[in-house]
């Protein structure tokens, strides 16, 4: 009996972890947009006051963005265009994010600030939608994972 319980717990644990793994892409998408939104605010504030150069602003890139796009974004400090790739985002989303980074530093402060405000709006709406999707599907994947564990246990035992 106790062996069965242990087996069930292990199975449920494993399948729940798989469920969490499946839900991570929703979390990552949400985190990317959350960080992009914050980064827009940071850059906008900086441009209005300290006016750090783009290479210094890139040093302030948040963790998730660095992790997902760091290597490609390094090109910006070398004045090269970026072309971001990620399996967690759609092509048009990646084009928008690439566009955001490619326009950094290309125009004067007023124009840059207006562009940042525009991108902040885009990222905000995407963040809100990503958050909704995450809240909805992340829980489902975790629950489905746990349920799958129980089902496998029943079938096996």
């Amino acid at each position: 009996m106790s062996i069965n319980l242990i087996l069930c717990a292990i199975l449920v644990g494993l399948t729940t972890v798989i469920g969490v793994k499946f839900s991570e892409k929703f979390k990552l998408r949400r985190d990317i947009y959350y960080e992009l939104l914050n980064y827009c605010t940071l850059v906008n504030t900086n441009i209005g006051y300290k006016k750090d150069t783009v290479d210094k602003l890139m040093d302030k890139l948040p963790h998730t963005l660095k992790r997902c796009f760091g290597a490609e974004l390094n090109k910006i400090s070398r004045s090269q265009m970026v072309d971001l790739r990620s399996k967690n985002l759609k092509t048009d989303e990646l084009n928008d994010i690439s566009g955001f980074f490619n326009t950094l530093g290309s125009i004067d402060a007023k124009g840059q600030s207006e562009l940042l405000n525009y991108y902040a709006e885009v990222f905000k709406s995407r963040y809100l939608s990503a958050e909704t999707v995450y809240q909805k599907y992340a829980k489902i994947y975790v629950k489905l994972g746990a349920l799958a564990g129980v089902l496998i246990f029943i079938i096996l035992v």
Binding site: K51, T53, I76, L104, G105, S106, A109
Partner: peptide, 13 residues
């Protein structure tokens, strides 16, 4: 010019 401005025109306007 891009190199002089470190690709940051706003900082050098």
């Amino acid at each position: 010019i891009l190199r002089l401005t470190k690709h940051s025109v706003y900082a050098y306007e």
